[in-house]
Amino acid sequence: MSRIAFLGTGSMNEAIMGGMIAAGTDPSEVVATVRRAERAAELAERHHVVAIAGSEDPQANLEAVRDAAVVILGVKPVGIAALAREISPSLDTHTIVVSVAAAVSLEQLEAALPKGQPVVRAMPNTPARLGHGVVSISGGTNATAEQLAQVRALFETVGTVVEIPESQVDALSAISGSGPAYAFYLAEAMAAAGAELGLDPELSALLARETVAGAGYMLAEPGADAAALRRAVTSPNGTTERAIAAFDKGGIPAIIAQGAKDAADRAAEITASLD
């Protein structure tokens, strides 16, 4: 078996699929399911994969997973268990079922699948769409080391992959999952500050956007350390030092820590609500 099936091919699953194909996966070995015929035609034209619309074929998901080596579930969290139960009759016992849905636990997924089915929980973030994401993987009860390595190789086409115990997923989600929004929030605040200082709002937005993006490239260099990079541009008694002192006085580190904790707590609440 070599087929890879993407069930619910929204922007994230499409990004993963596109990354895999760009890295050498044969498009003829990929099948995707979506709800609308127009979306199916779009995916088929863009990626040269088999794309099936549920609106035209009620058996689309069952057909897609038949003889698949890996099945990647990309529907909304509330629909994951129902989808898992739907496809169960067509799954091979060795097929690896991967969920990229936030908050859905391995226990919840395994309960909806045939006993013994290999399951992996993955948590990608939005930069994966550009090939610069962070993806965590956590193996279920029946996932072997070899199967985890197979899933890791698939996700490495869209970014950095880390393997963590499921107990750490909520914490990871609070940093890398929600983290892009924190960076965008910072860029928004910087742009607003520049406009307050008299810059043209469009110019200020450009400066903030390019500065945050450029800093990200510096952080992506091998061996980069955020604290060291900050110190390198913070001259004693200079302008940047004055700004950092104001941030510290305002409690920015503590605010970020509290925000991350609240995000992790909310992830746990959502998981509990799906039981």
Rank of each mutant, 00 (worst) to 15 (best):
L7T: 02
A267N: 13
E38N: 07
A60H: 07
I16V: 06
L172I: 14
A32Y: 06
S167I: 09
L154K: 02
A40W: 05
S99N: 06
I72N: 03
T239L: 09
S273I: 07
A213D: 03
A257C: 05
R46I: 04
R266W: 06
T25R: 12
S105W: 07
N237E: 13
A143R: 03
P89C: 09
A183M: 14
E196F: 03
P180V: 06
E45F: 00
P27W: 02
A82H: 09
A191Y: 01
A15E: 01
V162Q: 13
A195Q: 02
A181M: 10
V162F: 11
I256P: 09
A243E: 11
G116W: 08
A195G: 01
A213R: 04
I16Y: 01
A60K: 02
D67V: 11
T271R: 02
I244P: 08
A183D: 02
A263C: 15
R3I: 15
T271G: 05
L207E: 04
A272C: 00
Q258F: 07
A246W: 08
L113N: 00
A224S: 14
L148N: 10
A51N: 09
E156Q: 13
K249F: 08
G259F: 04
P89Q: 10
D26S: 13
A268H: 07
A23I: 02
E146L: 01
R36V: 02
A84Y: 00
I164A: 12
D92I: 10
A82M: 10
L83C: 01
A254V: 11
A82D: 12
D26K: 08
D265R: 03
V78Q: 12
R35E: 06
G133H: 06
A220N: 14
L199F: 07
H48S: 15
D225A: 11
A22K: 14
A15F: 07
T271D: 03
A145D: 13
N237R: 15
T211H: 07
T126K: 04
H47T: 11
M190V: 14
V49D: 09
I252Y: 12
L206N: 15
I244Q: 06
A101R: 04
S55H: 05
E42H: 04
T141Y: 08
I21N: 01
A111G: 05
A51Y: 05
L7D: 06
D57E: 01
T25I: 15
A213S: 00
V49I: 15
E196A: 10
L43C: 04
G177D: 15
G133M: 00
E188W: 05
E38W: 03
A264I: 01
L91D: 08
Q147Y: 01
T33N: 06
L274C: 10
A171E: 08
